[in-house]
Design a protein around this nucleic acid. Sequence first.
RNA 1: GCGGAUGUGGCGGAAUUGGUAGACGCGCACGGUUCAGGUCCGUGUGGGGGAAACCCCGUGGAGGUUCGAGUCCUCUCAUCCGCACCA
Length: 823
Amino acid sequence: MADYRYDPKQIEPRWQKAWADERTWEVDNPAPGSAARADDRPKSYVLIMLPYPSGEPHIGHLKVYSVGDAVAHFHRRSGRRVVNPMGYDAFGLPAENHAISTGQHPRESTDAAIAAFRRQFRRWGMSIDWSREFGTHEPRYYRWTQWIFLKLYDRGLAYRKEAAVKWCPNDQTVLANEQVIDGRCERCGAEVEAKQLEQWFFRITDYADRLLDDLDTIQWPEHVKTMQRNWIGRSEGAEVVFRCEELGIDYPVFTTRPDTLFGATFFVMAPEHPDIERLARGTGHEEEVRHYVNHALTESTEERGAADKEKTGVFLGRHVVNPVNGERLPMYVADYVLMEYGTGAIMAVPAHDERDYAFATKFELPIRRVIQAPDGDDELPYTADGVLVNSAPEFDGMPNREAMQRIVDWLDREGKGHGSVNYRLRDWLLSRQRYWGCPIPVVHCERDGIVPVPESELPVVLPDIADYAPRGRSPLAAAEDWVNVRCPACGGPARRETDTMDTFVDSSWYFLRYCDPHNDNAAWDPAVVDYWMPVDQYIGGVEHAILHLMYARFFTKALSDLGYLNVQEPFAKLFTQGMITREGAKMSKSRGNVVSPQSIVERHGADTARAYILFIGPPDQDADWSDEGVEGVHRFLSRLWRLSAETADTTADGPVPHELTPAELALLRKAHWAIEKVTNDMSGRFAFNTAIAAIMELTNEVSRLRDEVGSGAMRFALATANSLLFPFAPHAAADGYERLTGRRVWEEPWPSADHRYLEHDTYQLVCQVNGKVRDRVEAPSGASRDQLEALALRAPNVQAHIDGKQVVKVVVVPDKLVNVVVR
RNA sequence: GCGGAUGUGGCGGAAUUGGUAGACGCGCACGGUUCAGGUCCGUGUGGGGGAAACCCCGUGGAGGUUCGAGUCCUCUCAUCCGCACCA
């Protein structure tokens, strides 16, 4: 035994070289027109979220790719034609910030990180089809990102409008929401301001209903679907028109509670509402209103949004008319009303809305109850269901749910409103005043306005610049030679768009490009994409539950509507893996609890690192890293490998004999049990932890029985263990399997259990008295209920517990237990 | 506040449809092998009682349904994660 030392440093490079030399994991696309005939195996597209390349891969990468690779291997050996591609989400802020501080071109630092990632993924032995690799920063890729932008622009799905952005006055740049910490710039600490800028948007709100409804068609974790539903935030209600007669202007409001319309006692508008100044003019409240609005607008969203903040506001000096009863309601401006949601104005019903109630109390406005609680509860505000009161004779006494519809119908007939739906979802702001991103392919012409760059001139290549620091506009604006162009429409002078795209645009279609990554004539060949899409299994972090996954779904639907795709949903199944923590906390440099995958791989090998990370617990849950646990898995791999190597060298190869000794039968049973267990754990859910535990049990059984079994059974059991282990620890498993069988495990079909070995002649019948286990007896399989009952009643310790008592009932569960109920 | 998740030995975690709680691994204890061990191989290991057979208790807490509950129902506590004045 001492001669057989498990040495991953020898084993792993050898197999990695074979896989690289032979391009083992590459798959061809179907030849044109022969998709189905080329290969009749079903396809499987296994996709792991592409990494943002920065520095070296961290432990989270090791986890997500270990999960993905196990799935890919399992699908392959279950007879599917698997594509498992890899690429890099290479545009982004960290590389740009690095450039600002060091002057190194973001392309250089990004390419260095990509090289490091690629090296690690190979070192981990991931079964990736490297022939499909790309980075989203390469012109051959972003050419088509630009093409998609133009298609969406043609369709009216990309448009420009003024929008409030977060602006750092010190750095002279727009900040992403994530860059604003407590209302201050994360880089310099300056207080962030709001600024109006012309920005590009994608009209994702057009797809709100489809994005919501189609969640029902995909197999995603329920909590991810819930997050998306909440993010879309669909509310049904009504739009109701309130008229300001003094100025002759109609103000529609959105309400989810048209049943409370008779309880409206005032009216509130958002500080950003464009009519505020006009409304207040000449009322004597002008000065006060202007002051309030200015203050509200400079307040940070955090300050303004604090939930328990006291209500503030100012009377506008005007009134609107409630369309249902003609009452004049005073108009206020208050920052608790948001311009971005609904119409930027609300009817306030203080009796039945907590915010309106708080405002009314503070400003001593009337509160009128119009819904009576069924239990007579007279506390206000009352937000639950009830019966209408103090409304109109035809509605009083009506349950409010019913009244909603009746009132909406009435409004509709009178032309004063209609049923309406509102969403929390906003259009996707994609402009970034940044350098390291995909250029937006349009020019601004003095004569023709916005003119798209013709497709034939794509890509609009990102130029090299000298100074990456933002100066109140995109750093690209300084590249004068690049910016100044001829207008493609009129030939006159024009300037290129200098904003770049949000990097979420790049990652919203990369899964399509993987299908056909070398196509120079089109973003993809529709037939090829038809063959591979949708992604059968998508795997990634739950942190992308909303943005990336929503955007990718939107792109898929829009491209499908444009006729370039035939799928509505990009990702048929989704798996989100949990975080790896250490000492119960997220790994971070400041905490000093970081474990680098490189150090683990260096010390124990890639197989140990991969198998441990899958063994640690259910992969969808957070798991705490333990150095001792790694040792345990390494011991297991050592033991299995040593047993395999020694058995291969010291025993004769041969078949499993027909006549089995009891030990051989026990071992074969364990092997077939393990096959069954691992197969179930991998196909239903991703229970890799219990799958690996089963292989450990099988290995333990081999150890226990090794001196009692012949070489046929021994070799079969060990080959089976290696075969089952392959998706989790591919190098060691391939090595052990080859030594035992001379064959390559990845070319072998996934083993299937022989059910004859899963059946037993007898089993341990559990004997309970009043639900407590009192004895166990050997029972023949398939025995009748009466036989089982008799067996149980005869069991010595059952006898002891029923002695002197009356047997009331006997519950028999065949193949399991008998429960004797006594009194 | 709303939504979601998670609570099981000293630790990570097991436990198809309600049916033997604690698989597997770590740690620990004891024993063996070894010149040595941060090696390898055994054995034991939820708590309490007992020489043993065996008994009692036990899945965050309190109730309930059931012959039987970690699992189902009601209430409750704790931790974590989203969203958050969304009309």
